[in-house]
């Protein structure tokens, strides 16, 4: 199967690989997927507590090229966004941007789940309830 140019670019030059201090109050961490499924994504956001703006985002992913590209792209999109705007990121936007084929849509779903999980982790640290996923995938 041929990968799109954008997937290859993110795979070869992944943006924002790394680790933020997950114990910091301003950091939200989302860990989604499972090793036996062949995909695990960890996405972290660092939020400015006053403005609610995501100032930094990092990821690490175990998975195929599309999974790596989806999470790399997600960190790019997250930086500079408010938490509310970040919640608007839809997996289909990722599919479109990376031209993912149907068998790789689950990679984008995982990236969206990772964003939501990171935001909810941040919210939990600030005594806020989790935002429920209104969307049902599949």
């Amino acid at each position: 199967m041929a990968y799109s140019e954008k997937v290859i670019d993110h795979y070869q030059n992944p943006r924002n690989i790394g680790t933020l201090d997950k114990s910091a109050k301003s950091v939200g961490t989302g860990l989604v997927g499972a090793p036996e499924c062949g995909d695990v994504m960890r996405l972290q956001i660092q939020v400015n507590d006053e403005t609610g703006i995501i100032e930094d985002a990092k990821f690490k992913t175990f998975g195929c090229g599309s999974a790596i590209a989806s999470s790399s792209l997600a960190t790019e999109w997250l930086k500079g966004k408010s938490i509310n705007d970040a919640l608007e990121i839809d997996n289909m936007d990722i599919v479109e941007e990376l031209s993912l084929p149907p068998v790789k849509i689950h990679c984008s779903v995982l990236a969206e789940d990772a964003i939501k999980a990171a935001i909810n982790d941040y919210r939990a640290k600030h005594g806020l309830e989790a935002i429920e996923d209104k969307k049902k995938h599949y």
């Binding site: 690989i17 860990l31 997927g33 499972a34 090793p35 990821f59 690490k60 175990f62 790596i68 789940d113």
Partner: peptide
């Protein structure tokens, strides 16, 4: 370098002890 599992392994975390959110 970009694998969260490798990082956990290096930190001595048992991957089997984690409740994975299988999708």
């Amino acid at each position: 370098e970009m694998s969260p599992l490798w990082e956990m392994f290096k930190e001595g975390i048992d991957l089997k002890s984690i409740e994975w959110a299988a999708h």
